[in-house]
Amino acid sequence: MRLTCPYCGERDLREFTYKGDALALLRPNEDADPSDWTDYLHNRDNPAGVTRELWYHGCCGTWFVAERDTVTHVTKRTLTLAEARE
């Protein structure tokens, strides 16, 4: 598996660290219902198919979002966090 860092281009998997579902970008407000926090911290859609997830590129220090198929391991596209938040 190879991933494309939005800044450095396509690189070997060993340069990257998986940081979990991109749900992490949607942090609830402090006064949100506890069930929202459980959904944020623990519950996952966990699709067998295309998922949005966070990766960290250790070489340049960038966090980015990858849209990747969990069945084929093919990455559709990668986005900077700014692009992902739009």
């Binding site: 060993r14 067998a48 997830e53 969990t70 391991h73």
Partner: peptide, 13 residues
Amino acid sequence: DFYASYAQRGNLP
């Protein structure tokens, strides 16, 4: 392998 997967096969690293 430390990334989400349903592939039943892993990667080389």
